[in-house]
């Protein structure tokens, strides 16, 4: 059972990263970015094109370029979405579906529907710890997730922009009255979300390979993690990711892997029934 839980934790870390990207945008602008997976996939494809796909750039340079490009794309997308966001959150959310399709179309146009291999530049090392096989990839995923989540929480907790983000997400109207630039806060969340997306995509493709659909499919599980976390709680979505990873692995191992999607839906329903505001929500009372 221990290896199953371990693998679940490693996969769960990736779901957490994906979920954090979705929650960042939701917290700041009350909309769900359904293009998150496709845009992250676009970043991963850029890394592939610059490394294994032919250009043979150093890995770090390729990742830096992909991150810069993803930030640029996310800023552009935000400026396309912003006018719609003023109409309604739902309109903007639906528009992200279209943007996701465009991103997927660009991938298909440039790379076709083939499947590609994109490995992290890591030596193939593994060790047995208490009968558990632990690879360098597993450790990397854990460390990168911890580092990214740590930095993210520090930025949100300690920096001026982070405090603005918290203020605007708690009460946008009050934030605006106090002189906060909502556009700046929105851009901050879109850029952080893009960075989280590319990191998650680069960490997941060594196990799933890279195609026009793999990152989008992976983000569906991340979406479930965000829902379990309450969708507006960053710590909740991080824990939700681990719960989804471990839960899915245990279910696949002991029950039936082909029913995994059904399990995920039941898991979401159960979780929302028990914790309507997410797993970390405080019980709220109301006066009559």
């Amino acid at each position: 059972m221990l290896p199953v839980i371990w693998q679940g934790i490693v996969t769960g870390c990736l779901y957490s990263l994906g979920a954090l990207g979705l929650v960042m945008i939701f917290k700041s602008s009350r909309m769900v970015n359904f293009a998150h997976g496709a845009l992250a996939g676009l970043g991963a494809f850029l890394v592939y094109a610059l490394t294994a796909g032919g250009a043979s750039w150093p890995w770090t340079a390729a990742v830096a370029v992909a991150l810069a490009a993803s930030i640029l794309v996310s800023v552009l997308v935000y400026f396309v979405i912003a006018p719609l966001l003023e109409c309604s959150d739902t309109t903007a959310t639906i528009a992200t579906l279209g943007i996701g399709m465009v991103a997927q179309g660009i991938i298909l146009w440039q790379f076709g529907s083939n499947i590609f291999r994109l490995d992290l530049p890591l030596p193939n090392v593994s060790a047995s710890i208490f009968g558990l096989s632990v690879t360098l990839y597993d450790v990397t995923v854990l460390l990168v997730t911890l580092a990214v989540v740590g930095v993210l929480f520090l930025v949100i907790d300690r920096t001026r922009l982070g405090i603005s983000f918290r203020a605007a997400s708690t009460d946008p109207f009050a934030g605006r009255v106090c002189g906060l630039s909502i556009t700046r806060v929105h851009l901050f969340s879109w850029i952080i979300s893009a960075i989280l997306g590319v990191i998650a995509a680069l960490l997941i493709v060594p196990t799933t390979f890279l195609s026009s659909t793999t990152v989008t499919t992976f983000m569906l599980q991340a979406f479930a993690a965000a829902v379990i976390g309450g969708f507006d709680s960053l710590p909740g979505s991080a824990i939700g990711g681990i719960l989804v990873g471990v839960g899915c692995n245990l279910f696949s191992f002991y029950v039936a892997p082909e029913l995994l999607n059904s399990f995920l839906l039941v898991f979401i329903l159960f979780s929302l029934s028990c914790f309507p505001g997410g797993i970390l929500s405080k019980r709220m009372g109301s006066r009559v």
């Binding site: 290896p3 199953v4 196990t207 799933t208 390979f209 793999t214 696949s252 191992f253 892997p257 082909e258």
Partner: peptide, 16 residues
Amino acid sequence: VSFDVATTDLSAQIQR
């Protein structure tokens, strides 16, 4: 142990 055609990660199947 089976898998759906859209599945991209077969870790659980290999564990079985």
